[in-house]
Design a protein around this nucleic acid. Sequence first.
DNA 1: CAGAATCCATTCGGATACTG
DNA 2: CAGTATCCGAATGGATTCTG
Lengths: 115, 115
Amino acid sequence: MDERTQPNDSAAETCYCPTSGVIDLLSRTYAIQTLCAVGTLQPVRYGELETAFGDVSSSTLSSRLGDLTEAGLLERNQYDEIPPRVEYRLSEDRTDLCELLTPVLDWAQQRETTD
Amino acid sequence: MDERTQPNDSAAETCYCPTSGVIDLLSRTYAIQTLCAVGTLQPVRYGELETAFGDVSSSTLSSRLGDLTEAGLLERNQYDEIPPRVEYRLSEDRTDLCELLTPVLDWAQQRETTD
DNA sequence: CAGAATCCATTCGGATACTG
DNA sequence: CAGTATCCGAATGGATTCTG
């Protein structure tokens, strides 16, 4: 169903309809960055991310990691050692999203500096 | 500067630092969708977008269009006719961002239906 | 170290009018 | 048609504090 709007079928059919769940998720603060950072630095620990971002509050980063993990985009592995260690990495089949998103970050970054 | 973290230099160096302006912008409701929709349907009128999204409030869409236009990502052309007509399209050199983003939307959409 | 919990200021965005 | 203005509830995310 939904045979309307087909200007050109370069990307088959993109749906612009409601704010989908994943997009919603990516709209939260540091979500895209977190996803891409994990993808690049994985396996990565909580503290590393905190350092990489520089000015994110622990509660925010924590929430974001929780969101992404719950959504199945990230994998969280906890090692019951002393001191505690937790590693995050991309879920196997979600790597592609990260590859889609990184160029966006790069684009944004370049625009900041160039513009 | 910044000679740390270089897992592979596929994308040179991606910055995960603060929430950059553009990312901030894209995080707003319907921002990504609006950008991609305009890219595909351009030149597109206000009402067309409203219809395409189906359930967006006029104030929200209006704000989004304003944001994106102000950021230089969209171009707004007003024709003083009766009835009034306004057309939106991507700014010349911003097309690439749309091309980066559409796959993300597609990914999200596919995940919704498949997952 | 890696968070969870709480509290709260700010913001966002939807609904609902109302214009040029 | 293409919005803008206003109002207001919901939600976000930062700071802070505390814990296994």
